[in-house]
Amino acid sequence: MVINKRKTLAETKKRTLITYSFPESIISEQFRTIQTNIKFSIAEQKGRKFLITSPSEGEGKSTTSANLAVSMAQQKERVLLIDANLRNPSLHSFFKLPNSNGLTEVLTGKSSFEEAINHTEIGRLDVLTSGFIPHNPVELLGSNMMQELLNYALQSYDVILIDSNAVLDVTDTKLLVQQCDGVVLVMQNGKTKIEKAKEAKKVLDFAKARLVGVVFNQ
């Protein structure tokens, strides 16, 4: 059974989803440029699963994930945005969605993929929220169920974007890297220290990640 949970975005924070509220803005155009760069960078490999992370928390990776997903959906792409930050999720608040049934419930077999999906009014953008915060996020994200979920989703979507934890904070992100075709690293101008950026790059290289872009937030 597919539950269609379309939500109005009238109450959505305009500053958060600027690509939705102000699609003609300079920032929205920058997100379209990021989107184009990603497409060109993976054209030969035909990658479709992308992880968005940052060296540390608070650098804007979730905001970047949400706006990049909106930008892609506005270009007629079928986009699935997954909140795989099972420790401190936030995407449900960006889109004003319930978070009682999400990724955690699908991975633990408590819900089907179709029941957990939230359909938005933005093009063909669907959101899979995190669901309840589990006691074993590493085990869930590194499970065969996670890989099966992504493979199943590829049958219905052109692009899958995964918002994750900061790569230097926990093991979760390293596990997800191995299941994705590319990684976008988000850093905040004036906050991200060069040492942290280099360490994040080293960790991603060790995990054999394909870095397809770096986003600098102001």
Results as ranks from 00 to 15, higher is better:
Val2Gln: 14
Val2Gly: 03
Ile3Tyr: 08
Asn4Met: 08
Lys5Gln: 11
Ala10Glu: 15
Glu11Asn: 13
Thr12Cys: 12
Lys13Val: 08
Arg15Met: 02
Leu17Arg: 01
Thr19Phe: 02
Phe22Ala: 11
Ser25Met: 06
Ser25Ile: 03
Ile27Asp: 09
Ser28Val: 02
Glu29Lys: 11
Gln30Tyr: 08
Gln35Lys: 14
Phe40Gly: 08
Ser41Ala: 15
Ser41Asn: 15
Ala43Val: 08
Ala43Tyr: 13
Gln45Lys: 14
Gln45Met: 10
Lys46Thr: 04
Lys46Met: 11
Gly47Pro: 05
Arg48Asn: 13
Lys49Leu: 08
Lys49Cys: 05
Phe50Ile: 08
Phe50Val: 02
Leu51Arg: 07
Leu51Asp: 05
Thr53Phe: 00
Ser56Tyr: 04
Glu57Arg: 07
Gly58Asp: 00
Gly58Lys: 03
Lys61Glu: 00
Ser62Cys: 03
Ser62Ala: 14
Thr64Tyr: 00
Ser71Cys: 02
Met72Ala: 12
Lys76Met: 05
Lys76Thr: 10
Glu77Lys: 15
Glu77Phe: 15
Arg78Asn: 14
Leu80Ala: 03
Leu80Glu: 12
Leu81Met: 09
Ile82Val: 13
Ile82Gly: 07
Asp83Val: 04
Arg87His: 12
Asn88Cys: 09
Ser90Asp: 11
Phe94Glu: 00
Phe94Gly: 00
Phe95Trp: 07
Leu97Gln: 10
Asn101Val: 14
Gly102His: 06
Gly102Asn: 03
Leu103Arg: 08
Val106Ser: 09
Thr108Glu: 14
Thr108Ile: 11
Thr108Pro: 04
Thr108Ala: 04
Gly109Cys: 10
Gly109Gln: 12
Lys110Ile: 02
Phe113Tyr: 15
Phe113Ile: 12
Glu114Ile: 06
Thr120Cys: 04
Glu121Phe: 03
Glu121Ile: 09
Glu121Met: 07
Ile122Tyr: 09
Ile122His: 06
Gly123Gln: 09
Arg124Leu: 10
Leu125Lys: 05
Val127Arg: 02
Val127Ile: 15
Ser130Gly: 13
Phe132Ile: 10
Pro134Leu: 07
His135Asp: 14
His135Leu: 14
Leu141Lys: 06
Ser143Tyr: 07
Ser143Pro: 03
Asn144Ile: 11
Met145Thr: 09
Met145Val: 05
Gln147Arg: 15
Glu148His: 07
Leu150Met: 10
Tyr152Trp: 11
Tyr152Ala: 12
Ala153Pro: 02
Ala153Gln: 01
Tyr157Arg: 06
Asp158Trp: 09
Val159Trp: 12
Leu161Cys: 03
Ser164Lys: 01
Ser164Val: 01
Ala166Gly: 11
Val167His: 01
Leu168Pro: 05
Leu168Ala: 05
Thr171Asp: 13
Thr173Ala: 01
Lys174Ile: 12
Leu176His: 02
Val177Lys: 06
Cys180Thr: 14
Asp181Cys: 03
Asp181Trp: 04
Gly182Arg: 07
Gly182Trp: 11
Val184Phe: 03
Leu185Thr: 08
Asn189Leu: 10
Asn189Met: 11
Lys191Cys: 06
Lys198Phe: 02
Ala200Ser: 14
Lys201Tyr: 10
Val203Gln: 09
Lys208Asn: 15
Lys208Met: 10
Lys208Leu: 12
Lys208Gly: 05
Val214Gly: 01
Phe216Gln: 13
Asn217Asp: 02
